[in-house]
Nucleic acid binder design. Structure first.
Lengths: 350, 350
DNA sequence: TGTTAGCACTCATCCCTCTCGAGTGCTAAT
DNA sequence: ATTAGCACTCGAGAGGGATGAGTGCTAACA
């Protein structure tokens, strides 16, 4: 796509395109010329509309489902609609609901995230996905190792944001259980305040030698320890309203439901999708999506931030016939609210 | 149901009933007399089968979907089948898979539970639900309170089974943050080893006065603390394979799928259902279920134990046309394996 | 020249009917 | 007691209008 011919649409074409897409988004039925001409703000006859519709179809913004059907927006049509026809309005009812949730009393950040995912889905009847918060900026607050038996223990990491990770493990035979306490002390002294993302590195470079010096010779088990303590903290994915989506008329087909569910259960792939987001609001319509499994859907992603480091991604997955205007407004509000909430957190706990 | 007339079936009727149900469970299609008479172990003609089928229908074990259709088991038929016609066979392939998972290396118990739910569902294409482990016998290993800022903190409870619970909270103004450490020490001294279920009580009766004595006057905030630390630890519910169930031909109808999902998302209700289970394997077929939402389904529950105290429930939810024989065998194996695994845990960590 | 009325045409959807086949129940013969 | 035979029932699926919402095109109009 080196050259993209810029197609100029007349005012009237813009108006008609917009009305058609608005109508289809609401009704999910192909839109006919007569229905358009009857609308209040359309002073043209059905025949005129038909001519314009034919032109819009030639330009690729509209499609027919069969030769004598009404028109349906093409993906290119949606793209144009999203890029040029929707003014980023703020819908206040939705905004209030969201602000209420994000700011209501004291919650763990993760609770806020979870509730947001839930509400986002209920407001829209699409499936909401929230990734993160990513851990670029979160720092280790404290590390605990609690022994359960002679050879098992559970390690607990607490971050400055109140996030808690834990993992059980068997204590390597090289390590004398009685040394565990010393080990934890050293780790806490050296690693407290260190960004989570740097823990594994710092452990390898600075801590290991220190451990060998002050604790018994931990030998090869340092790698195991590193693994247990600092590696592969799974990215948390909050998916809200897998079932709400079934309300959409697009899912009046059993096979579609099946393929949707087998897709949505594959959390890894979803997480991968969202990770590509790099800030701002991004709309991927149908085939624009990189992943085959959602080429029938639209995915709207928004990032929420903390200072420099990006923290996570909020997304809504729905049919290409999506309420783009409302969804974009919603994600805008929510990402700002979450960013604000995070900022407050940081100010208090950083 | 004060009196239940005991109906005697002839050997032949038993055989025919069994074959019909087996066939229907496998095929999901109404079973006709000719198909039965053609089976190897059936030496009777189709006409004979028809006569017997008519009798079995009169007795309520079979039904027709319409006047000239083949027969389908009634719920009473399934009940009889489950009670009298299936010998509790152990299916070794399944058994091996399960043993492998439950005993494979060192895992947190919760990981085992989660994986079991997943595998159970994949083996059967039904939806698996695992409740618990209930906390009757688990004891507090250690309590931690980690302050995040001047007025927020996160409380972490670790049990002897390696289970970790955590909750963020605001520090009540009555409590001097510098006293928190003392508070935690007292709590750990007094409560370590106490069964989780008794924590709240013990806190109210024994600890509060002690705290007032040794720490600053915590006043009315003791109730808040109790709430934060010990109350309402939500029962964990692991649901596996919500989507697998869609493979069942019973779900070839969009509305059924919708109602299934809106039911399964209501975790509270499900948890309530499973809590009624009191040991052994229990089969609830269709209308036998107390909850309306699953009167079209069968629910098989099995408890897993630890010593005296029941620990949790494993269940499979499927259509009434369920592979009862296999499912019962599976749950049997799994409940024993989990019970054994728990026992080992206890021996090591009790 | 842009707009509109009119008309022939297309196609999905609904409904009706017909056929086919898998099943039954009943009766009479073995 | 069992079975072969037969008439009957009913669901599923195919075929065939009728309906109606939609189109494209043409010719008339301002």
């Amino acid at each position: 796509m080196l050259t993209e011919v810029i197609i100029m649409l007349t005012e009237r074409q813009l108006l008609i395109l917009q009305v058609i897409i608005d109508d289809f988004i609401e009704s999910a039925h192909p839109v006919g010329s007569r229905a358009i001409s009857k609308k209040d703000d359309i002073p043209y006859s059905a025949a005129t509309i038909r001519n314009e519709m034919a032109d819009l179809e030639d330009m690729g913004f509209l499609e027919k489902t069969h030769s004598s059907s009404g028109r349906v927006p093409s993906e290119k049509g949606y793209r144009y609609y999203v890029d040029h026809l929707i003014s980023p309005s703020i819908l206040h009812e939705d905004g209030d609901v969201i602000k209420h949730i994000v700011n209501d009393g004291f919650f763990e950040f993760e609770q806020i995230v979870q509730m947001s995912a839930e509400v986002l889905s209920q407001l829209t009847n699409y499936t909401s996905i929230i990734l993160g918060p990513e851990i670029f900026e979160t720092k280790l607050k404290q590390l605990q190792i609690i022994t359960l038996s002679s050879n098992t223990a559970v390690a607990i990491l607490v971050t400055n944001t109140g996030h808690v990770e834990h993992r059980s493990f068997t204590i390597p035979t090289e390590i004398n259980p009685s040394d565990l306490e010393k080990l934890v002390n050293i780790l806490n002294n050296q690693l407290s305040g260190v960004p989570i993302i740097q823990l594994a590195d710092k452990f390898n470079t600075e801590i290991v030698s220190m451990l060998n010096q002050y604790v018994s010779d931990i030998g090869k088990s340092y790698q195991y320890l590193n693994e247990v303590l600092f590696h592969e903290h799974p990215v948390k994915l909050y998916i809200g309203g897998k079932a709400n989506m079934l309300m959409q008329p697009e899912f009046n087909d059993v096979d579609k439901i099946r393929s949707f569910y087998s897709m949505i259960e594959n959390e890894d792939k979803i997480a991968h999708l969202l990770k590509q987001s790099n800030g701002g609001i991004k709309v991927s319509i149908g085939q624009e999506n990189d992943v085959d499994a959602i080429k029938d859907f639209s995915l709207i992603t928004a990032a929420y931030h903390l200072g420099e480091g990006q923290m996570g991604t909020i997304a809504l997955l729905g049919p290409t016939r999506m309420e783009y205007r409302r969804v974009i407004s919603l994600l805008n509000i929510l990402s700002h609210e979450m960013t604000d909430a995070l900022y407050m957190w940081y100010k208090n706990n950083g």
